[in-house]
């Protein structure tokens, strides 16, 4: 079992007013799955994703990652997991501004132990079709290309899981399709993908769809008609 959540609760304290965002979430994820977490805004899906992705800690409940209880992890151990075993793709890309595409992808490598940073980063960028944009500044490329840089950055340390938080939310449909296609391909190569979206269409790229409402899981089912985006060659070649 790659990910195991038991009775996860998350509360926010806003000046004495406690808001419970996640109520008793339990969830198992096997290695190699492609999961969409769906729900309207405010449902708690992003919060859940942040907790699974080690960006946030639950108020209570147990979280086992690779059969290890993350409660026992120190800050440094958490940093290592974020660096080596997971990759994160954000809705707003979160690239370093005024920095080259290559340096953005190298960034996670500088926090790890791997060598040959330039070679690894170039390979990751080639995998998302940006091998010819290495020395462009991050603000000189299109939104779709930015998100592909972000995917390359998530990929560069060869993680087991890639988390994607509304990865197509800021993109036009064509760029969005390209991004979903890349995620699908990464999954077929054996990587676990966990995707958060409010959009049914995007969610249907996954093999399993979990729906959340008001902080609880209201449905968790296999997606029998998984969508495949056709590869849009011209975008990849650009």
């Amino acid at each position: 079992m790659l990910i195991q959540l038991k009775n996860i609760i998350k509360e926010y304290d806003n000046g004495g007013v406690v808001t419970r965002v996640l109520r008793n979430i339990s969830l198992d994820v096997e290695e190699g799955e492609f999961i969409s977490i769906m729900g309207p805004s405010g449902s708690g899906k992003s919060t859940l994703m942040h907790i699974i992705g080690f960006l946030d800690r639950p108020t209570s409940g147990k979280y086992f990652f690779d059969n290890e209880n993350i409660e026992t992890f120190t800050d440094d151990e958490l940093a290592r997991i974020r660096n080596e075993r997971i990759g994160f793709v954000f809705q707003s890309f979160n690239l370093l501004a005024r920095t080259t595409v290559l340096d953005n992808v190298i960034l996670p490598l500088t926090y790890g132990k791997k060598k040959d940073h330039i070679m690894l980063a170039t390979k990751a960028l080639e995998a998302v079709g940006l091998g010819n944009r290495l020395n462009f500044l991050s603000n000189q490329i299109s939104g779709g290309q930015k998100q592909r840089v972000a995917i390359a950055r998530a990929l560069v340390c060869d993680p087991k899981v890639i988390f994607a938080d509304e990865p197509t939310g800021n993109l036009d449909s064509k760029s969005g399709a390209t991004v979903m296609n890349i995620l699908g391909r990464l999954n077929s190569e054996g990587r676990t993908i966990i995707l958060v979206t409010h959009d049914r269409n995007t969610a249907e790229h996954a093999k399993r769809i979990i729906t959340i409402k008001d902080g609880t899981i209201i449905s968790d089912e296999k997606n029998h008609h998984q969508k495949k985006s056709e590869i849009i060659e011209d975008d990849l070649e650009l």
């Binding site: 992705g53 960006l55 800050d75 440094d76 940093a79 290592r80 997991i81 974020r82 660096n83 080596e84 994160f88 979160n94 370093l96 960034l107 996670p108 926090y111 790890g112 950055r153 340390c157």
Partner: peptide, 16 residues
Amino acid sequence: TREIGLRKALGATPKQ
């Protein structure tokens, strides 16, 4: 601070 958040998300330790 946002930059630090990103760096942490990518695996930077507090010491780094």
